[in-house]
């Protein structure tokens, strides 16, 4: 008989260690490099997508939290803004994604797309909240851009997640 704990252990996906290093690094590099090619139409947030992916599949809130914090702070380090804005947003998204991954099956592409869309909106809202409310800085934002970025993340996730599925460790 499968106990809930045993069932959860079965569904946890594991990856080789180098994947945990290379994929986030590639996400950061591409996120910094691609806007040079496609300009302001770079409606994507690859570090957030990678955070969501590993959090959903590892089903470990601690793992999701730490990965989100590290990737978010690295994003802030590359931008001109205070370090921690994206860090907090990605931390919360990583934790929530892992918590959701424990409860629902996330193999379906539609569910993945909806989750990516929702988490992108959440991250954008948190960035605006932190900048304008917590830090009290003057910050203009365009809701249409945020919607487009969320949609872009959902679409990219459709291609990226199956690709990353192939990198999981086989028993």
């Amino acid at each position: 008989m499968l106990t809930p704990e045993y069932r959860r252990d079965l569904e946890i996906r594991r990856y080789p260690t180098y994947i945990y290093i290379l994929v986030p690094l590639a996400a950061l590099v591409l996120q910094a490099w691609l806007p040079r090619i496609i300009g302001r139409f770079a409606y994507m947030d690859l570090p957030l997508l990678v955070t969501i992916y590993f959090a959903l599949n590892r089903r470990s809130p601690i793992h999701g939290t730490v990965l989100g914090a590290v990737l978010g702070m690295a994003q802030d380090g590359l931008s001109g803004r205070a370090v921690g804005i994206h860090g907090i947003a990605n931390t919360v998204c990583g934790f929530l994604a892992a918590s959701i991954g424990i409860r629902i099956v996330v193999e379906n592409n539609l569910i993945r797309m909806v989750l990516n869309f929702m988490f992108s909106l959440l991250a954008s809202a948190m960035v605006v909240f932190i900048t304008r409310v917590l830090l009290g800085l003057e910050f203009q934002w365009n809701w249409l851009d945020e919607l487009l970025r969320a949609a872009g993340n959902g679409a990219i996730g459709l291609a990226l997640f199956p690709l990353l599925d192939r990198t999981q460790a086989r028993d």
């Binding site: 809130p61 939290t65 914090a69 370090v83 921690g84 907090i88 919360v92 918590s99």
Partner: peptide
């Protein structure tokens, strides 16, 4: 422990933000 790690990570970053804003 999950919540503790989350709160700790958030707290550290919030403190870091506060320090940056105070210096700026």
């Amino acid at each position: 422990r999950n919540l503790v790690v989350l709160v700790a990570a958030l707290l550290l970053q919030v403190i870091g933000l506060a320090v940056q804003v105070r210096k700026a």
